[in-house]
Design a protein around this nucleic acid. Structure first.
Lengths: 131, 131
DNA sequence: TCACAATGTTAAACCAATCTAACAAATATA
DNA sequence: TATATTTGTTAGATTGGTTTAACATTGTGA
């Protein structure tokens, strides 16, 4: 099963890894464990699972490197996160934390089709007419 | 743990049970198993868990009865489902199946606060201004 | 009413994800 | 450089949810 779909959990790990690598060039397991509020053991486990599915390259005690496939996936997730957060902030007028929290939860379950429509909606800022 | 929060899975069972009871007065495990695409054994298991948390009353081979608490919870879930479906249909212009599918997925994870805002948004059909 | 079909339950196994505790490796510092 | 601290790994247990297969109960129609 090296190519199975990513669970919400693994998506969170990947997103976290990508964000760190993107901003500081690297990331350590302990940081991920703090960010996601899980044990170091769970991180080790997740790294194995992500590597098995070829979203990252990684060896025992080694540095974490995202693959092409991983970057693509992470960017998709982050794109969803960004648009969803904007929707909750700008359209539903939630504060940033609540908006981000909902984005986190929904980014893993919204369908591609629905997300594309939402993206369009946010770009166009379509005007609704009261019926 | 008789009062723990309901997992997405259990929410689906409860929603299914409520809908059947509401429309035909009762429901059997086999129907739930068909609706949710799980084995009869999983249904039995879910009924135990729902009963333990006091969302339903139920005994071995007996009829399934929803408690006050269960009705309240089910109606909350269905309210979310309805509003979310409308949003995806009317605002994002998805077809009914895709709208419902997304509602199903999101109804279990959206926060109360976000949902209340969405509900308001759908009621007011607020006009957005392109920035 | 009795046998068969349908439905429900149980046990045992499985899987993903988590944890703790013990241990190993790497890093920092005296 | 030797040791102490930090970080990472492993093993083993736990939890929730699922399955299949065997069995129990209920319901139905000859």
């Amino acid at each position: 099963m090296t190519n199975a779909i990513l669970s919400s959990g693994l998506e969170d790990y990947l997103e976290c890894i990508y964000n760190h690598i993107n901003s500081t060039g690297g990331v350590k397991a302990i940081q991920i464990s703090k960010d996601l509020n899980v044990s170091r053991a769970s991180v080790t486990d997740a790294l194995h699972r992500l590597a098995e599915k070829q979203y990252i390259n990684y060896e025992r005690y080694g540095i974490i490197v995202i693959t092409e496939k991983g970057v693509k996936k992470a960017e998709e997730i982050i794109d969803k996160h960004t648009i969803l957060t904007k929707f909750f902030e700008q359209v539903l007028e939630l504060d940033i934390d609540e908006a981000s929290e909902n984005a986190c939860r929904i980014e893993h379950v919204i369908t591609e089709q629905a997300f594309n429509k939402l993206k369009l909606f946010m770009k166009e800022k379509k005007v609704l007419v009261k019926t």
